[in-house]
């Protein structure tokens, strides 16, 4: 089974003095998956990623990356070649230019001189920093620094990325740019483990989700299963005329939960716990009631609301 998984951990535990940051985590991530790790601050996400990236030594438990066992205090050369790690504080050398920084890491990753220049150029284009190659890293904005760190992370063509809070503190434009880069990387079939508090980003990028609470991995599985197990989807309904009539009709329908009026639009967001057939029946009943429906859109739910309703918000 170990050979069939990109990441496999067994009983992974990390203790700091009397505090357990990660508790007996059994993680299984198949190849090519984009795995989102969510949980409140202090739940153990960063520690788990650091353990996988060999930045911390486990107190107990074992880790396999692409079938290779991580041995503490050893070089683990095979694993290192496969791994790209982006820490949450994206460390840089402030006295180097963007090009020098990437070329330095290209040398550290033993990229041959004939390919070094080309590869640095490629990753600069990927993260859209070509016009900044002669700038000192200290002069870059936060978003640029994060993109430069991502460029460093993928420089040696790793098959697995560990990204710890890669979009924290970024403005919406920078976040969108970062998401686009991740999607580009996703196409090359690499396995990505990404932690973030911006759950809408994870919902857009991830195929699987893990929820951490108090150092425990309390949920791990495909995103679709999480939506299904939450038993809830949302319906966006728009209509012309009086929305109160629409609200009244919805309230009297089976499966309908909370109704929220979206500001500055004639739309309602409706929590719906029924099946697809029941959603179709709901739409039919609204039309039959003579309500002028202009939009009726089922969405698989909101990851943030599922997470908040799950009650897994305790820190370790």
């Amino acid at each position: 089974m170990v050979k069939q998984l990109a990441i496999y951990t067994h009983g992974l535990t990390k203790r700091f003095d009397d505090r357990i940051a990660v508790r007996e985590v059994n993680l299984k991530i198949p190849y090519g998956e984009v795995y989102g790790l969510i949980g409140p601050n202090g739940a153990g996400k960063t520690t788990l990623i650091k353990l996988l990236a060999m930045a911390e030594e486990p107190t107990q438990g074992k880790i396999w990356i692409y079938g290779d066992r991580l041995v503490p205090n050893q070089p683990n050369d095979r694993v290192k070649g496969r791994l790209g790690y982006l820490p949450d504080d994206f460390p840089l050398y402030n006295d180097m230019t963007v090009w020098e920084y990437l070329e330095y890491f290209a040398r550290l990753y033993d990229l041959p001189p004939s390919r070094r220049h080309k590869r640095v150029r490629e990753v600069l284009e990927l993260v859209r920093l070509t016009d900044k190659e002669t700038s000192l890293t200290a002069t870059l904005s936060r978003g640029m620094k994060q993109r430069l760190s991502l460029a460093r992370t993928v420089l040696h063509r790793p098959v697995m990325l560990l990204l710890d809070e890669p979009v924290s503190g970024l403005d919406p434009v920078a976040r969108q740019l970062f998401r686009d880069i991740i999607k580009t990387l996703q196409k090359s079939q690499i396995t990505i483990l990404i932690s973030s508090h911006i759950l809408s980003d994870l919902a857009e990028l991830c195929t699987s989700i893990g929820i951490m609470e108090q150092g425990n991995l309390v949920y791990s599985g495909p995103l679709s299963e999480l939506y299904a197990s939450a038993g809830q989807q949302q319906i966006l309904v728009a209509a012309t005329g009086d929305l109160n009539v629409l609200k009244a009709q919805l309230k009297s329908s089976p499966g309908v939960g909370a109704i929220e009026e979206l500001p500055n639009s004639s739309r309602l967001r409706v929590d719906f716990s029924g099946t697809s057939d029941q959603a179709a029946e709901l739409m039919r009943s609204l039309i039959k009631a003579g309500i002028p429906i202009t939009e009726f859109q089922c969405t698989p739910g909101d990851l943030e609301s599922i997470f908040l309703k799950s009650g897994h918000q305790k820190t370790s």
Binding site: A53, M54, A55, D77, K80, G81, L83, Y85, P87, D89, P91, L92, Y93, F105, L108, Y109, D110, R152, H156
Partner: peptide
């Protein structure tokens, strides 16, 4: 500054 671990992760 957290750069030592990046050196550890390199092929050197």
């Amino acid at each position: 500054q957290g750069t030592l671990h990046l050196l550890r992760l390199s092929r050197q």
